[in-house]
Design a protein around this nucleic acid. Structure first.
Length: 604
DNA sequence: CACACTTGTCATAGC
DNA sequence: GCGCTATGACAAGTG
């Protein structure tokens, strides 16, 4: 029964799987509406100096700083800038430091950032490149965060200790805050970034920092190739990356054409995609965090679990003890009824568990009943297999007292074994008839048949003797055909009986092992999910820092007239040699698209 | 009496 | 082909 219960849970299709995503989408829809309003209020304030800047386009050698007319069609120029300070800042603020084991390197970030050209004339927001990828309407990362938020809430209700640590993002946590942002919103509502972007995108550098503002900005500096002296970390991780693509969102404005501009694949999105497809089962966490099974199942109902077995139930005392208790009491009653049997010479060779011998014989009755099948010694601790242990232990488990059957087919036949004695209760009654009746009832059907047919040896021998000895035994007696047939039937049935017992025990043990495996796997899954959350959190922090550095660097750039460059027309690109170039966005977009095709080609 | 459960038994497949 | 084991299915017994 507990088996049916255990696996029955699996069959309960809660139909909530899609609700997870629906919820996320609903959240996103709401966020979209909200963010659309906010985004309109926070339109980019960058000066539109594109035409003017284009007229002054110069290509600057990344190493020498020499300026020369750009080779780019349209006369755009490229300006290489030193990002030494930027790189230092980035390295200093990189949450992973030199941890080479971090699964998502910066290059993955850059690949993830959509590089989009903005329709001319649109006001750009310098801020959003790192955020846009998470702001698409169907962003899986957003879904992930939504889900995690839900889980967090649920976990807080269920278990406020560990779950809080795991899923409660600290105040201002970028993961929690950013992921709750609405899709399609070019401007992130994160407070810090908001401030930085609004300030950085305009001439108002005070919003960045007083230091930045006070820094002397030479117009010529914009034309200088500022190769970072120590750019190893970025150089190795960014490679030849289009920073424009990294830092400029696909959707700089909510009015931008979504379909016109393809977005680069998001590694985070991929991760989250897997996460979503993994059917983030709350039961995993429940098991890992020690949730109450009932509560966990309730959570699971909300998040659905099309996959996997439903755990737990098998470990409830009722589910386990019901079946095992019955068998145990049954066996114990049998054992107690035959406890008077003092001859148990054959039992010593039996395994502790498993139906080794044929228990119908009094010689082996008690131990056979108390023990088990031949050659199979599963682990029964979980099942509280009292039936194969000391029957007296049964009294220690009150909830097992009410169960117990008295299957007496295999009880010791006194007629076949003189050593067999009635139980004390029968002796007290003293009546020989009663004893005979009792013993008669204790005999199995085969024992009755054997006695009726006057079989000259015990059923135990019939069943348990090896074939050679068995045949030798038969040859010693003059047996009729009917007797031989009965003996063979007894042997067959006796062996099959033990086989059936072994089979059932094995089946139960297999279920136990499977449950244990499922538990282990769910524990591992929960752990991996937690690690993934941590990685995502760190990745987002790193992205934010890179973004702010980009803003800072870009904001410092000045043309020869001392005016800042428009982010709608220029972008920073990190070259493979460590230099950073200021290039027109059109060129940056082209390069970004080129990089976008590479992974696709690789897949093919 | 119905039900759940255990156990024995049979039929069958496979070694 | 025989003997044995494993296992699903069924029936009987029990509480």
């Amino acid at each position: 029964m507990w088996l049916a219960y255990c696996f029955g849970q699996k069959d309960i299709d809660l139909g909530a799987g899609r609700e997870i995503f629906d919820y996320s989408h609903r959240q996103k829809e709401q966020d979209v509406d909200k963010e659309l309003q906010d985004g309109a209020e926070q339109e980019d304030t960058w000066p539109s100096e594109g035409a003017e800047a284009l007229a002054r386009n110069l290509l600057v050698d990344g190493e020498t700083g020499e300026s020369f007319p750009a080779q780019v069609p349209g006369g755009e120029d490229q300006t290489a800038l030193s990002l030494k300070e930027c790189l230092r800042l980035l390295e200093a603020t990189c949450p992973f430091g030199e941890n080479a084991e971090f699964p998502a390197d910066i290059s993955s970030i850059t690949e993830a950032v959509p590089s989009e050209s903005e329709p001319p004339g649109l006001q750009n927001n310098l801020l959003s490149p790192l955020l846009t990828e998470t702001e698409s309407p169907f962003d899986l990362e957003q879904q992930w965060q939504d889900l995690m938020s839900i889980m967090e809430m649920q976990a807080m209700e269920v278990n406020t200790s560990t779950s809080e640590i795991l899923y409660n993002a600290p105040p201002g946590d970028p993961l929690s805050t950013n992921y709750s942002l609405a899709p399609n919103t070019p401007i992130n509502q994160n407070v810090s970034l908001h401030q930085a972007s609004l300030g950085g995108c305009s001439q108002d550098f005070s919003l960045f920092s007083p230091e930045v503002e006070s820094l002397p900005v030479a117009s010529s500096s914009t034309l200088l190739p500022l190769v970072p002296s120590n750019s190893t970390s970025l150089n190795s991780t960014f490679g030849s990356t289009n920073l424009a693509g990294l830092f400029f969102p696909a959707q700089l404005n909510s009015t931008a054409n979504d379909t016109a501009v393809p977005e680069l694949p998001d590694p985070l999105g991929g991760l989250l995609d897997e996460a979503m497809l993994d059917e983030i089962s709350l039961m995993d966490l429940a098991i890992e965090e020690g949730f109450n099974p009932v509560q966990a199942s309730q959570l699971e109902e909300e998040f659905d679990s099309d996959s996997g077995l439903s755990l737990d139930s098998s470990h409830s005392p009722s589910s386990l003890s019901s079946s095992e208790g019955s068998s145990s009491s049954s066996s114990s009653s049998s054992s107690s009824s035959s406890s008077s049997s003092t001859s148990s010479s054959a039992s010593s060779s039996f395994s502790e568990e498993g139906a080794v011998g044929y228990s119908s014989d009094s010689e082996t009755l008690d131990l056979e009943e108390a023990e088990g099948a031949v050659g199979y010694q599963p682990e029964y601790s979980k099942f509280c297999r009292m039936s194969y242990q000391d029957p007296s232990q049964l009294s220690c488990l009150p909830y097992l007292e009410h169960v117990g059957h008295n299957h007496t087919y295999n009880m010791a036949p006194s007629a076949l074994d003189s050593a067999d004695l009635p139980p004390p209760s029968a002796l007290k009654k003293g009546s020989k008839d009663k004893q005979a009746d009792f013993l008669d009832k204790q005999m199995s059907r085969d024992e009755h048949r054997a006695r009726a047919m006057k079989i000259p040896f015990t059923n135990d021998k019939i069943i348990n003797l090896p074939v050679e000895e068995f045949n030798e035994l038969l040859s010693k007696y003059q047996l009729s055909e009917a007797q031989l047939s009965l003996i063979r039937d007894i042997r067959r049935r006796g062996k099959n009986k033990m086989a059936a017992q072994n089979c059932r025990k094995r089946k139960l043990d297999t279920i136990l092992n499977l449950e244990r495996d499922v538990e282990d796997l769910q524990r591992d899954k929960a752990r991996l999910l937690r690690e993934k959350v941590e990685f995502l959190r760190s990745l987002r922090q790193m992205k934010q820092k890179v973004q702010s550095l980009y803003q800072e660097v870009f904001g410092r750039l000045r043309d020869e007239n001392g005016r800042p460059y428009s982010p709608s027309q220029y972008a920073l690109q990190y070259a493979g040699d460590g230099s950073v170039l200021l290039i027109p966005r059109t060129l940056a977009d082209q390069q970004a698209r080129r990089q976008e095709r590479k992974p696709k080609d690789r897949r093919k």
